[in-house]
């Protein structure tokens, strides 16, 4: 079996006396699209941030492409990495095309060429070239999300993270974003990790699903088995019932 793109063992993270991640073990194979689901505040974003080194874990190991990355993602990993943040996280001070081409410009690509690549990436997510010279504040929420997705894919990364990609979007736009994510992940042949509590995203984006609850991965399996699982956590998450092993009061 080949080395997983991402391998996490015994990951723990607490805030004060509150444990958020309580011994996470997780492997993501190359080219696989894993969707991590769980209720709000269950530590999904914390898990992503720990993997990237944006937050220091209390214990456990993280390996990216077989390399130890417990202290933070190595530069070599980040250079072929793209991420869509929940709120887009576009840089306010830069026009959209400079946002999208940020890594390309950083890597020394001439501005004309970088701009052409940015416009192509914008087109790939359904935004016209007219948007390229606008500033993020001039875009609607959905357009910002698309532009952020264009930024994530512009440098053709081999690993992509998506943090709540459909949060705050209407169902139609959410479907558009989900479809774009699936298309881009497939086109790039990338390893993808998506965190969400949106079941539509699970259905459209996942090869495999993991359910995070109480700091642990309660269930992992192929997307085809997710909705038929008799695991009480999964069943409650899918049906949205208030009673069950997932407490509503957190």
């Amino acid at each position: 079996m080949s080395t997983p793109a991402i391998s996490v063992r015994g990951l723990r993270k607490s805030f004060g006396a509150t444990p958020v991640l309580d011994g996470i073990d997780l492997d993501v194979a190359r080219g696989e699209s894993l969707v991590i689901v769980g209720g709000s505040g269950t530590g999904k974003s914390v898990l992503l941030r720990c993997i990237l080194g944006l937050m220091r874990a209390d214990a456990g190991t993280i390996r990216l492409d077989g390399q130890d990355a417990t202290g933070g993602a190595p530069e070599a990993f980040l250079r072929r990495f793209g991420m869509l943040f929940q709120g887009g996280a576009l840089f306010d001070s830069l026009p959209v095309w400079r946002n999208v081409a940020f890594r390309l410009l950083h890597d020394g690509m001439p501005p004309n060429e970088a701009r052409a690549r940015a416009v192509a990436a914008l087109a790939a997510v359904g935004l016209s070239g007219r948007v390229a010279d606008l500033y993020p504040a001039e875009l609607s929420g959905g357009m910002q999300k698309r532009a952020a997705l264009a930024r994530a894919i512009a440098a053709r990364p081999s690993v992509l993270f998506f943090d709540e990609p459909t949060a705050g979007l209407d169902p139609i736009l959410a479907t558009v974003i989900n479809r774009l994510i699936r298309e881009q992940v497939t086109a790039l042949g990338a390893t993808a990790v998506t965190i969400t509590h949106d079941l539509t995203t699970v259905r459209m984006v996942a090869d495999r699903v993991a359910l995070l609850h109480d700091g642990r991965l309660r269930w992992t399996g192929p997307v085809s088995a997710f909705e038929t699982s008799d695991d009480p956590h999964v069943a409650q998450f899918i049906t949205g019932r208030a009673d069950g092993p997932i407490a509503t009061l957190r």
Partner: peptide, 20 residues
Amino acid sequence: AEIATMKVTEQIDALVTLST
């Protein structure tokens, strides 16, 4: 205010993930 807003809106995290 600008940098704090960038921090709150994850723009600083985005910089890190863009190798900057």
